[in-house]
Simulated assay, not measured.
Amino acid sequence: MGTPLGDFIRAKRDSIQPQTLGLPDRGRRRAPGLRRQDLAARAGISVEYLTRIEQGRDRNPSVAVVNALADALSLSPSERDHLRHLTKITGGECTAHPLSPLSSRHVRAGVVQTLRLLEPGMAVLTNRLGDILAHTRAYESVVDGSGLLDAEAPNLTRYVFTDARARSLFADWEEVADEQAFDLRLSYSAENAERFTAELASFAGSDLTRRLNRHVVPPRGVLRLSHPAGCELRLERETLELPAEQQQLIVYLPADDATAQAVERLRHLPRHGTLRVIS
């Protein structure tokens, strides 16, 4: 049985053409991409050891081996971060913080206070399953009328894959769907992640399952929203990870003057309260 770490390394190896790394073309082969022996040689490890990692028979590669594989695969900074995270959940030595067995819905008092300090900015707190746990008033204003916050326990992942209004709200729905599926994969060590995935997959179908089987780190560029009020918003995102809780605090910043002006108009529309803590 494989592991998230082994699956990612194998998928990246299969996606690399040898010529891009200056390696000779060895002719036709059964599988696409970089040969296992070529990757092992570039990383300075044995083919047998690489095979054990890819097949999930070795779940504890050292920090040096993980870094060597990242160099050998020419991973981008975001892909290197992902590789380190996969090493954590697989049980390797790179673990800096123990991951919670559950994707927590509890919001620490300090996080609530941080959100209050971010007012009147746009910010939301979610866990890896996509549960929206808390948000500022301005965040509510930019999604108002979209249906995202209508549920008693709003969930961004469920909304993206099962609510038709999501395809209208998110101008780049495909990219947003990739991001949500990717974040869901990061919760695979949580006890409730598989239950949630099974429940969601029955409604989302191939839109979700196809993405869960990919191992591509999404770029997370500018988020484009088509607000129901007729505004087109372009938002930069800054993310603060809370690893102990498997939560993330996302702050949205206008990417241009037109968006800043539109957000200011939306922010002054009537709302209830200044901060909503859902859980």
Rank of each mutant, 00 (worst) to 15 (best):
S206V: 11
Q55H: 14
A204S: 02
I278N: 14
G2H: 11
N155K: 06
R105I: 14
V124T: 09
L184H: 06
V142Q: 12
V112R: 07
D172W: 05
P218D: 01
Y49E: 00
L269C: 09
T157R: 03
R276L: 14
Q247C: 13
P243T: 00
C94A: 08
R57Q: 09
E119P: 14
A166C: 12
E199H: 13
L169K: 03
A11D: 01
G33A: 02
A96K: 06
S15E: 04
A190I: 08
R165F: 04
L21D: 00
V222H: 06
P254A: 02
R220Q: 06
I16M: 04
D163T: 05
T51E: 06
D257T: 14
E232L: 15
L133D: 02
P219K: 09
R28S: 01
G56N: 11
V112K: 05
T209Q: 00
A260H: 12
Q19R: 05
Q180C: 13
L235I: 06
I53T: 00
G145V: 04
R84S: 08
E93A: 10
E175T: 12
G56R: 07
T259E: 09
P18W: 08
H272G: 11
Q248I: 13
L133H: 04
Q246Y: 13
L240D: 00
R13S: 00
R211N: 07
A164R: 06
S202T: 12
P243V: 06
E199A: 08
A258R: 10
V107M: 13
A138M: 12
R224Y: 11
H106V: 12
Y159A: 00
V107N: 09
E152S: 08
T274C: 11
R224E: 03
L73P: 14
P61G: 01
R35Q: 02
L125Y: 10
V251P: 14
T259S: 15
A138Y: 07
Y188D: 01
T136K: 11
L86T: 00
R214E: 12
L266F: 15
E175D: 12
Y252C: 10
G91D: 01
Q19M: 05
D172A: 06
G91Q: 01
A96F: 11
I53M: 06
H106R: 04
L102S: 08
D81R: 12
A255T: 09
D131P: 15
H227K: 04
R36Q: 03
A64H: 05
A72R: 01
R167F: 08
V124S: 03
I53S: 02
G205I: 03
A64D: 12
L83S: 03
G273N: 06
S189E: 01
G121R: 07
S141C: 15
A201M: 10
V124P: 15
A181I: 01
L225D: 01
E79R: 04
L129S: 04
A138T: 15
L83K: 03
E232V: 14
P254Q: 00
T114R: 10
A164C: 06
T3L: 01
D183N: 08
